[in-house]
């Protein structure tokens, strides 16, 4: 503080002008994607397709049952993507999304940085919007990491021959590639819905770990309920019910009924839990 006298303080004079800028969003993205923990989560996800590809490469062609698409890998390496996405979908991916979305508000509250963001000031609705945008970016990044690493390792270890779709038709690699990309984007959208749930949970507590765990538990519970035939009446409304509908995108002709239901369900979850998060956070006392 030796330079106190040297720097003449200047008084703000007029009402400050607000400008529309992506600076805060970029800062938030840097925070999410620059954080070692989140990078480790992405690395673990990237490890899944590598593990699958190496395991299949090293084993005999007829080593029995496995996850969907596993047997097709030896025909076309792109199927590593699909097999890996199917493997991470029930648990790994929801866990990753729970970590980032549960941390969104609760993490800042826990550190105390929330009060400083709000006094900058950042409007609470804007804070939620920016936080959620970063969560969505992470959801797609996580899914795409699995897909892209899967495609890369698959094409490195296996041939890129004609691909037989679920309905029995055979298509070329180019066609298969964009269908797989579509699958990844669909799963990303499903994860964004989970992210909205996670962010709502995150506004309820000042303990990020509690928010993360609760979100993960919700994702798993939804899948458990979805597996009980006695509860079939509520199945279509469950968060995870449409997650596997991406299989429809691999039929010929491509069926969009399931995925469209899934997108509708995801949009509804995002709207409802986004509104709940806002309702909860807008008037909340920030006393951490």
């Amino acid at each position: 503080m030796s330079a106190v006298e040297a720097v003449a303080p200047v008084r703000a004079t007029s009402r400050p002008r607000r400008v529309v800028s992506t600076r805060f969003l970029r800062s938030e993205l840097r925070l999410v994607f620059g954080r070692l923990r989140n990078l480790a989560v992405l690395a673990v996800l990237a490890g899944v397709p590598i593990l699958i590809a190496v395991a299949v490469r090293l084993s005999s062609p007829d080593s029995g049952e496995g996850p969907a698409f596993l047997s097709s890998i030896t025909d076309n390496g792109l199927f590593v993507s699909l097999a890996a996405m199917t493997v991470v979908l029930p648990l790994f991916l929801p866990l990753a999304v729970a970590v980032v979305s549960g941390d969104a508000v609760a993490g800042e509250a826990n550190l105390g940085t929330l009060r400083y963001l709000l006094t900058v000031p950042v409007r609470r609705s804007r804070l939620l919007a920016v936080k959620y945008t970063a969560v969505v970016a992470f959801c797609f990044a996580a899914t795409l990491v699995v897909g892209l690493v899967g495609a890369a390792i698959g094409l490195a270890l296996f041939p890129a021959g004609p691909v037989t779709l679920l309905s029995g038709t055979t298509v070329g690699s180019a066609e298969a590639s964009w269908r797989i990309l579509l699958c990844a984007l669909y799963i990303g959208a499903c994860m964004a819905a989970l992210g909205a749930v996670g962010m709502f949970v995150s506004t309820l507590t000042e303990y990020p770990v509690a928010a993360m765990a609760s979100t993960a538990v919700l994702a798993v519970t939804s899948q458990v309920l979805d597996a009980l035939p006695q509860l079939s009446a509520i199945h279509p409304y469950l968060l995870s019910h449409w997650w596997l509908a991406y299989g429809d995108l691999l039929r010929d002709p491509m069926s969009s009924t399931g995925p469209l239901h899934g997108l509708g369900s995801a949009a509804a979850y995002i709207a409802v839990f986004g509104a709940l998060a806002w309702a909860r956070f807008a008037g909340r006392d920030v006393s951490s």
């Binding site: 002008r17 400008v19 800028s21 805060f24 970029r26 800062s27 400083y116 900058v120």
Partner: peptide, 12 residues
């Protein structure tokens, strides 16, 4: 820098 980025009135 993060706090400054969050401020819509600040000049980047």
């Amino acid at each position: 820098a993060r706090l400054d980025a969050a401020d819509r009135t600040s000049d980047p």
